[in-house]
Design a protein around this nucleic acid. Sequence first.
RNA 1: GGGCCGUUAACUCAGUCGGUAGAGUAUCUGCCUUUUAAGCAGAGAGUCGCUGGUUCGAGUCCAGCACGGCCCA
Length: 498
Amino acid sequence: MSEESQILKQRRQKAEELERLGVDLFPNDVPLPERAGAIKKVYEGYDNEALEKVEDTFRVAGRIMALRRFGKAAFFTIKDASGSIQIHIMRDRVGKDRYQIFKKFDIGDIVEVEGRLFRTKTNELTIEADRIRLVTKSMRPLPEKYHGIRDKELRYRRRYEDLIMNQEVAETFRARARIIQMLRHYFTSNGFLEVETPMMQSIVGGATARPFVTHHNALGIDLFMRIAPELYLKRLLVGGFERVFELNRNFRNEGISLQHNPEFTMLEFYEAYATFKDLMVRTEELFAQIALDIKGSTRFTYQGNEIDMTPPWKKMTLRESLVEVGGISESELDDKEALNVRLEGLGVEMGRDLVLGKYLTKLFDLLVEPKLMQPTFITHYPTDISPLARRNAKDPSVTDRFELFISGREIANAFSELNDPRDQKRRFEEQVASRGDDEEIPPEVDYDYIRALEIGMPPAAGEGIGVDRLVMLFTDSPSIRDVIFFPQLRPEGGRRSP
RNA sequence: GGGCCGUUAACUCAGUCGGUAGAGUAUCUGCCUUUUAAGCAGAGAGUCGCUGGUUCGAGUCCAGCACGGCCCA
């Protein structure tokens, strides 16, 4: 190891000095302390006169965030999970020896303090320390106190420092936890069973995406990290569970962007005897509830744009959206050649003989999606790009499916489920046959899934909700990385596989 | 994958025309018992992302690479 920086050396030396003075740097006999936030809440309205009548002492523990010393006395602020509180310490009160030890404490150390409450000249509620003890010695300095940690790379790599220094980051992740709790509560209280299905699958399915491949040594087979839990959840419908949901990670071996992390959290739920239209109502209801809880209103701003989640939301067919929002003429919609010319005009090179749906959805991605700010259900997706969705009874070239867009992003995807095993088998086989070297299409038909459908799956509808994107929306976060504690980054030092 | 920008002390950032590496915070020493970005006086702290090149001389110019950010695909 190279020469350590001066600042680390000083911390280490100070720690050794404390140990020589008999101070335990990492004790493990600290009784559960009181929370700073709770104390502040209770004594909010007390002035000094009222506080003098409070005879109790309060024992708190937390990280020293700021420290202002004055020779024989000092003020410092400690922060715990509930908030922070100021401490005043005087040599003449804690004793000369204890004060000498306190002088060796640093910003970043975790300390335990006990004492009575008072208010300073500037009216700040403060604990006058009778006792102070080191709880955990910090061997490394915290980032600069005023600017905190700004460098985005460092914030993602060292999320622990980001969480200490940037209050709003902790708030975002508390909101995330709350949203996930609400999702879970909504489904369990509506009779859905929470289930867990394989994340390592021997046949990929349930979506169109490149999977991560791994290898099982004992079985001697390659396995794929799941890109979606869909086919397993529907097997559970066959098995007799009529309402199921799973809230967990999917993995897709694709690019990283403001909206994409290789592992991301998805909620999928399936409901027997429901159709995609029922799911629209559920989605409106669920999102509106979350908005009310987190934002206090179904109207709020995201990145400067007003979003109105008050149900009901706008509904359009894919074709309508291409004409009305995308500015494509009705006559072009069935003309692959014309659509391809459009795409080339937008700088997109696509193959010549793809299915019509591919051209339509690509144009949608470019011309329509970014403009859908308000919650909008887009329906009637072509059957040729919806291999798991039920055909529309009136027009079998489209499916009973919707995708939900908010703020120019896809948030959810839902459809009435295809439960005719004959049609499903045909669509799988066509898909695999047309695969070529497109790694996004599963290379193999999941015949066991067909077998399950042959046993009989009740009519049902299912939906997937991108939880990270939902959290972004409700926490006004511009990047998916702001709502994932440890987003994927290249390893430091540029280590790469050959 | 492409374009643009960034990478300098633990952190936040300056660094002019190529000529001895700077500030604030943090740290250390001294003073200081109501501060809250405390104050005053002093001190220490650098592989200027990495590797080459040009040059008498490179943080600065050039090339390649690494990592990141933003935009586009």
